[in-house]
Design a protein around this nucleic acid. Structure first.
Lengths: 203, 203
DNA sequence: TTACATAAGTTAGAATCTCTAACTTTGACA
DNA sequence: TGTCAAAGTTAGAGATTCTAACTTATGTAA
């Protein structure tokens, strides 16, 4: 237990970097046991602090989970952008590469992925009319679609195609991690689905 | 409180139909507050029994939620089959109709939908090699795809297309209920995406 | 009809969890 | 060096899940 070098119990009275370590502990526990079997107390034990300590850094349990979501969303986005590097503009492979990363993230961190996309919980609760900022992921995909089609602006056709692509990889991610159906026999099937979908949507 | 005619507190010592009523109470609470803010005690209060009563019918909290999932999966499947009635074989509309129901269910019961498809939690936990029975939904879609293509058997092309369709509506459902991005402005956009996707995948 | 086994409730309580209140330690800076 | 605020701690209230032991109702068989 606690073999992770990123997490070390505090040495002195003050911890130094408790907030970050609690987020990391939370992320690990969520991944291990699922979002609903995570407890603040466990995270405290992992970090080696009392059960009251987190409340100096987070308002409550929800806010800890939310921080994990934010951190994960950042990594997700960064990975997607990185996937584009080195691929020439106008290549369908750019779209496929982003899809591969999207699905890959979900497979690597299924519980965190699920948590990310079911946040905040009562979706109806957010003030109607007031939208959260559109996720940068969306913009990224739209830009790629426009470039591939040789459009200079993001018109409604571009938006529709981008949404279809996103929808597709999102669905594929969930089906894969839920393991409800054996969606794919091999990784090569995933590759085939990704490229087929990209081809058909961009056609 | 407790205005739902389906849920009534017991009259005598014995309840009569506690198991079913607890499932219904659980379903409602999950929908209201989200799967992770549901508590057994709340369901007990709704049903008007002591907090120990559920344990005569369910092993634990998990099993209560699981029962909700099973019941929901049944309704989901039934609705999809019903959507096909009256539509002539070989009509693309059959595919679209199923997609409409799929997405509609998710919108009508977002929390339950999410719960259904994240069950069981540690997906890695299920014995490897041993697959759960493929969901009847999958078979239903495959059959329709085969019919539409005039195939007599479910070959790998049929499977690929069916999976792509499923993946698409699944992703659309999640994006809609997560409300992460304003995916669609109007219901007509959903219609357009459904028919575009069906057309492109079946082409 | 009555006896009784069993299904399906109950109360009481242990163990765990979230979060607050009040107190203490430590480090930074005037 | 003294003081204050930040970031720990302990103690504990209130809720929760689930078990153990007890009680009540009901259906069946003599």
């Amino acid at each position: 237990m606690n073999s992770d070098p990123k997490i070390q119990k505090k040495s002195g009275y003050h911890h130094g970097d408790l907030r970050a370590q609690l987020i990391e502990a939370t992320r690990q526990l969520v991944e291990e046991k699922g979002p609903d079997h995570f407890s603040v107390s466990q995270a405290c034990r992992v970090a080696g602090v009392s059960t009251a300590a987190p409340y100096r850094h987070f308002r409550n349990k929800e806010e800890m989970l939310e921080s994990v979501c934010e951190e994960a969303a950042e990594r997700h986005f960064t990975q997607m952008k990185a996937a584009l590097e080195g691929l020439p503009d106008g290549d369908l492979e750019r779209i496929i590469a982003m899809g591969r990363v999207y699905v890959g993230f979900a497979q690597a961190e299924p519980s965190v992925f699920r948590l990310m996309f079911s946040w905040p919980h009562q979706s109806g609760a957010q003030a109607p009319g007031e939208d959260a900022a559109p996720p940068p992921t969306k913009t990224l995909v739209e830009t790629e679609v426009a470039k591939l089609l040789g459009r200079t602006e993001i018109d409604s056709d571009v938006k529709l195609r981008a949404t279809m692509l996103w929808t597709f990889v999102h669905g594929l991610s969930f089906l894969l991690i839920d393991g409800k159906a054996k969606v794919c026999e091999f990784d090569s099937d995933i590759e085939e689905m990704l490229s087929e979908a990209a081809r058909r949507v961009m056609a």
